[in-house]
């Protein structure tokens, strides 16, 4: 079993503090959902864990099985077993999806032990089929000209090909129609099990109808303010966030950033 521990995490962007002492512990074989209204720091959490260049961790710690994640370069975090399905994946001209994925897989293997092309193509084909993706997407340039839904599927394809210990899904459900949502959920559910932990960031309960979380957390003002089981998500769906604000005496749940 692996464990990702986030302790008292403070994160700033352009000098402005967004996360203000966040605590969270994830184990493999668990699915956590982080919910919360817009502007409460959910995506900042995802970016800070992965090491986005614009986000500055001002204090606190993130450890993966005791190893200091914040000391690692972005690629080392991925090598250690972290994965972030991004809300806005970059488009990279001239680099095919397949070449990119093969480079990513080989980055985890020793020189001389690269994945055979045949094996790679077999795996890629079967996973693309599972995600109902057009086969020609393997030869298209990475995310270039992909629709919103295609980009999200492509993130899940990468997740399935790379098999990380922990995946963070940053609003993977935004902009997806119901069919795409089902396909994306199917991919995540297939990953579910021993050796895989997941943190789903969303502000809709909708996705959680297809992926039942073990734990649900609510973020406000840059912290986790409430945690519970799947029933918490249902209550939020039915009643919104106001009851939590009332319960905790919060007037403005955001961390005060524009956007």
């Amino acid at each position: 079993m692996s464990t990702l521990v986030i302790q008292d995490l403070h994160v700033a962007i352009d000098g402005k503090e967004i996360l203000k002492g966040l605590n969270l512990t994830l184990n493999t074989n668990e699915i956590h959902a982080i919910m919360g209204p817009n502007g409460t720091g959910k995506s900042t959490l995802a970016s800070a864990i992965m090491g986005h260049p614009k986000y500055e961790v001002t204090s606190g710690s993130v450890t993966l099985d005791g190893e200091d994640v914040l000391e690692m370069e972005v690629d080392e975090r991925a090598q250690a077993g972290l994965f972030l399905a991004m809300q806005y994946p970059s488009e990279i001209t001239g680099v095919t999806n397949a070449d990119f994925l093969r480079s990513a897989i080989n980055s985890r293997r020793e020189e001389g032990d690269e994945i055979s092309i045949m094996k790679f193509i077999r795996e890629l084909d079967s996973k693309m089929e599972y995600l109902e993706m057009d086969q020609d997407m393997a030869q298209r340039y990475l995310n270039e000209g992909f629709s919103g839904g295609e980009k999200k599927r492509n993130e899940i394809l990468q997740l399935m090909m790379l098999q990380p210990k922990f995946a963070i899904l940053d609003e993977i459900d935004s902009g997806l129609d119901i069919d795409a949502l089902k396909v994306v959920s199917k991919g995540i559910n297939q990953m579910r099990g021993e050796g895989f932990g997941c943190l789903i960031i969303t502000h809709y309960q909708r996705l959680l109808n297809y992926i039942t979380p073990d734990h649900v957390h609510v973020m406000m003002q840059g912290r986790v303010v409430k945690s519970g089981g799947p029933e918490l998500a249902h209550k939020l769906e039915a009643q919104g966030y106001d009851w939590i604000k009332e319960e905790l005496g919060i007037e403005d749940e955001t961390v005060g950033q524009e956007a």
Partner: peptide, 24 residues
């Protein structure tokens, strides 16, 4: 950042971007 978040080293990521840039 995107390429590195998949485990690709900075050097290889730069290489990919440059080759991609010249690919046309």
């Amino acid at each position: 950042y995107y390429l590195m978040s998949r485990g690709i080293s900075k050097q290889d990521a730069e290489r990919l971007v440059i080759h991609g840039f010249l690919a046309p």
